[in-house]
Design a protein around this nucleic acid. Structure first.
Lengths: 213, 213
DNA sequence: GTCTATAACCAGATAGAC
DNA sequence: GTCTATCTGGTTATAGAC
């Protein structure tokens, strides 16, 4: 184990490149992250990066793709468990908060693009949308299961949009104060109230009065 | 009027530079916007940009400063009018939505930084925080007036944070779908429910049941 | 697959005539 | 204040030895 078996040195280098590139790009954004920064940070020469990924754009696409698959693999398959709506919603928000906290790069990469309209390749744009669409779909399915909205897709869509915008806004707040976390408490109250406002049955929801803190 | 009086040619050029720089930087981000892009887009040579602002960073600071003053000047002075909480909250959200729609660059500039940790000067960082703090303060004062929270500052702070994160998340959504608007309806329901949840008197609030759509 | 070396180019910034 | 011309350094990307 003192040195890696030669047969997967390439794969290990590939992962190392993606690790450091993901970290730098999520911190500084795509345009501000140069090949030489990645190269010196991960210890491999620039030409190795080009051998593996062909271009800076190729690195970005690969980073995004890996972040997406990692995040989606970490999320539960949208089947809500729990006796009542409040408990199911709580379980869902705990999942969201955990994913949000354990995968800090994911959303930042999605946000820190700024490039998508300029020099981005079609592949990069497609991957960004793929990533976002996967998140939207997961949130819609999960919230539909939480509130029992199989026959009210437009309500599920509104709740999912609300949740994701809150998560995006929190990701933004994070680069003003890096220790910022997703406020699940207020989000819980808000989602219950929104569902109730649309006539979704929410027995015992504390949305309209002074509920338990 | 066929040609500007010579005495304010400089001021007009300055404004033109800030206009195009603000547009480009809010679209592509700071790092991806080059001096030559701005120069060719506004028709002035690069050296004129340096004569006016000294550096690329100086341009960014000036753009941010102008966006901040323009946005804050457009916002009402945080005195809530309206008979009941619902009407006052509605007036507040209409203001937020209008500012959000009429000043599309403002928030994007705040978001599209990505630079703040790398090559940003102290002046740029300070201006970014100044901008953000002004928005937070305005939102807290306004919501405090809407709900009568003079003696519950922590509730006003939570409501303001919630609102601003929603606005940030919507600004992010905007560069996936540029015609995205702030969803004031759900936000109205959510803020009422949050206030009620903290025991703030909200007579007739539709947060807990099926309210009027 | 990894390395050194380098090509071709564009970035931010400046000098000095007008 | 605005212009042309230019300097320096960093950028993406490639060539070719090992």
């Amino acid at each position: 184990m003192t040195q890696a078996p030669a047969r997967d040195r390439g794969a290990r280098s590939r992962d190392a490149i993606l690790d450091t590139a993901g970290e730098l790009m999520s911190r500084y954004g795509y345009a501000a992250t140069s090949i030489s920064m990645i190269s010196t940070a991960c210890g491999l020469p620039a030409s190795s990066l080009y051998w593996h990924f062909g271009s800076k754009d190729g690195i970005y696409v690969a980073v995004l793709e890996r972040a997406r698959t990692a995040l989606l693999a970490a999320l539960p398959p949208a089947g809500a468990q729990g006796a009542d709506v409040g408990r199911r919603l709580n379980a869902f928000l705990v999942e969201v908060e955990g994913a949000f906290r354990r995968h800090p790069h994911g959303l930042k990469l999605l946000l820190g693009l700024g490039m998508v309209q300029q020099d981005a390749s079609a592949a990069a744009v497609a991957e960004v949308h793929h990533y976002r669409n996967a998140l939207v779909a997961w949130a819609e399915e999960s919230l539909s299961a939480v509130f029992g909205l199989a026959d009210r897709p437009e309500v599920a869509e509104e709740l999912a949009r609300f949740t994701l915008r809150m998560a995006s806004g929190t990701a933004v707040a994070r680069w003003f104060a890096p220790d910022t976390v997703l406020d699940t408490g207020p989000l819980h109250v808000a989602l219950l109230a929104l569902a109730a406002h649309h006539g979704v049955p929410v027995h015992g929801a504390p949305g309209g009065g002074a509920g338990p803190s």
